[in-house]
């Protein structure tokens, strides 16, 4: 009974975080960027907050819900934009999985966000280059993409660090922590 209740509470938290992430992603899609294909990736803040409060599995769940949910609302489900979004998200999660054991003792949210952002564009680039448009000139796009990922990752990382240190969030984090060793 008690385990059931904590599981459903956890589901509710994941659903709420995914809803916030979908909202951020939709808002971000509505804002025209200076360069097509470049956006700050503010929804990654939610993934990072989830990872650092609810743990690794919740972060995967929130991210996959965000990708599928936002593509349903934007009408891009199963289109190239969806596959690019999914590949980027999975690559970012892979980078976070590698670094998660070092957080928060040796790596903070800023480093995690930079690594995730760079993995995100790298994954998207590989999908675009190998599958969607196998053009030999495409690698020339990689350096500026990495540069924007570095800047965007640092920005979202700093924002995540501030979100996590906010006392109002901190209160939720204590409540949100699953029972057992943290």
């Amino acid at each position: 009974m008690n385990a059931d209740r904590s599981a459903s509470r956890r589901d509710q938290q994941i659903a709420a975080l995914a809803a916030i992430a979908i909202g951020i992603q939709i808002l971000e899609a509505a804002i025209p960027g200076p360069i097509p294909g470049v956006k700050p990736g503010l929804a990654n803040i939610v993934t990072l907050v989830t990872l650092l409060t609810l743990g690794w599995r919740a972060a995967v769940a929130v991210t996959l819900l965000r990708v599928v949910g936002s593509s349903l609302l934007l009408g891009t489900l199963l289109s190239p934009a969806f596959w690019l979004s999914l590949t980027g998200a999975l690559a970012a999660l892979a980078a976070l999985a590698l670094l998660a054991p070092f957080a928060p003792r040796h790596v903070g949210a800023t480093g995690l966000a930079i690594a995730a952002a760079m993995a995100h564009v790298t994954g998207q680039f590989l999908l675009a280059w190998l599958v969607i448009i196998p053009h030999p000139g495409l690698p020339l796009l990689l350096p500026p993409l990495w540069l924007t990922a570095l800047i965007a990752g640092a920005t979202t990382g700093i924002l995540t660090a501030h979100v996590l240190s906010d006392p109002r969030i901190q209160r939720h984090i204590r409540h949100a922590r699953p029972p057992g060793p943290a």
């Binding site: 480093g111 690594a115 570095l150 990752g153």
Partner: peptide
């Protein structure tokens, strides 16, 4: 920046080096 660790500097430096090399 709250929660900054030495690993953040390592990741940022690695990323910057990757960008410059690319």
């Amino acid at each position: 920046i709250p929660g900054l660790r030495w690993g953040d500097a390592v990741i940022a430096a690695t990323g910057a080096g990757l960008v410059v090399t690319a």
